[in-house]
Design a protein around this nucleic acid. Structure first.
Lengths: 247, 247
DNA sequence: CGACACTTTGAAGACGATCAACGCCGGTGG
DNA sequence: CCACCGGCGTTGATCGTCTTCAAAGTGTCG
């Protein structure tokens, strides 16, 4: 019998399913440990599994012929991996997946995902919604890369960290190394480092791994005017709301 | 009675549906003309419709507070618009949509899409596959923007044009103005213009609107080594295959 | 203490954006 | 018919930003 935490049962992907349906689906998942540094799968491998991360952190990245490497995504607890590759019927994984810290995952056969989508219309709609919002996030990121400067990208990333992980904006710790974050943002570590200095005057202070976001207005002027979604940046709005709640 | 072309009936999204099911779904679509320059919908408008483009070309773009504008996608006949916004249950459109040339579209109520996905599992799976591959394309584009130089981006775009629209690589016409293409690639028109000159020595010759791709090997060395999907660039492989067929 | 990964800082160079000027073309109006 | 205009594209010069190479500082762990 698997010990299935309520966090997993409450994943948005299971919305609208009865408790016994959820359990039947989750029983299929095999818990698996992935020690820091170990690859869960590699670019090009046959797509065999769908994963739910239950602890730790994974890095999804690609490498090319020149040895260049680009971090595609950083994934933490309660996030899912591979739904797009499975639904897109890819032959091979399009990314490498490695554990940044000791991690645990639930491993499901790839077929499980398609079957569940065929069997439960609600599951299919949840999956559609997840993948659609992932597509949107990727589009937005492409837009940011094309239009934002390095400091704007970093400021935007810091805001998203806060909202996504529900951190206290006034004082939180970076959940990844600066090297990894720079790679995630598609910039060099040197640029990232210099950028942090520039951000001090815009209300974002980073010392070591400690971050403190103090002046939301300055950030808004600096970052969110370049952000084209619905006039004002949605992430920034969420952050303001959060800060308001904390006070 | 709508005249529904077989092109539309054979859209991948209808795969696995019976002919009468397709027809029932397609009957709901209202044909609509969009003259060149007219907006089909604007950023922020309530999401009311799903569209299938049946002729002409549409531009999807965003604009931000600074007046900056970024082309998100260029859409031609037999492509669909808005599936992600509908499935992601957005309140408002995230992009503007304007006709680049006189166009016609089939207009469906937004609800039609969700209902069809709930009613026909095959339709839901097709939709999942479409959106998943769109998500992948967006991720790939973000990666390209982060890692490729302007000439590489342009060369990559030219190759994709060929494959997507089934053009003869040795001689085809640009389907969009250079201004639009530059905007689509996130670069300035001046940069784009200068870039075309550089590409001549790499086997891509552009004169006016005529393009001719002659030296695939040179392009591969120049572009595809930077492309990290499955070792070699999938688009480039498709192009090589195509060229081989033509000879 | 030394090895090593991670980060910071400096200096040089490459690349793309920006500003400005100009050529080309199709359309409009005198 | 010609003059004028606006949209489009090219070309040149300059500037700011990010990458690259190099060196040194910080931290942890055996």
């Amino acid at each position: 019998m698997n010990a299935i935490s309520s966090t997993i049962q409450n994943l948005p992907i299971f919305n609208g399913l009865a408790a016994d349906e959820k359990n039947a689906l989750l029983q299929i998942g095999q818990p698996r440990k992935v020690p820091r540094g170990e690859m869960l799968f590699a670019q090009g491998d046959t797509v065999k599994h769908f994963y739910i991360v239950t602890s730790g952190a994974m890095q999804l990245f690609r490498s090319n012929a020149d040895g260049g490497t680009k971090t595609i995504a950083l994934v933490r607890s309660a996030q899912t991996v591979n739904e797009d590759e499975i639904m897109d019927s890819c032959h091979g994984y399009r990314v490498n997946c490695v554990a940044l810290e000791d991690a645990t995952v639930l491993e499901f056969p790839a077929k499980w995902l398609k079957d569940a989508a065929g069997k439960y219309p609600n599951f299919a709609l949840n999956l559609l919604s997840m993948i659609a919002s992932r597509a949107h996030a990727a589009e937005l990121e492409a837009e940011h890369l094309a239009t934002m400067s390095a400091p704007q990208l970093v400021a935007c990333f810091m805001q998203r960290l806060c909202v996504l992980h529900d951190f206290d904006p006034k004082n939180f710790k970076l959940p990844y190394s600066k090297t990894i974050i720079a790679s995630r943002l598609g910039m060099e570590i040197e640029t990232f480092s210099r950028t942090l200095a520039k951000l001090k005057s815009h209300g974002i202070v980073v010392e070591g791994n400690n971050v403190s976001i103090t002046n939301l207005d300055a950030i808004s002027d600096y970052v969110c005017d370049a952000c084209s979604v619905s006039g004002a940046c949605a992430t920034h709005q969420a952050l303001e709301k959060k800060l308001h709640k904390l006070n």
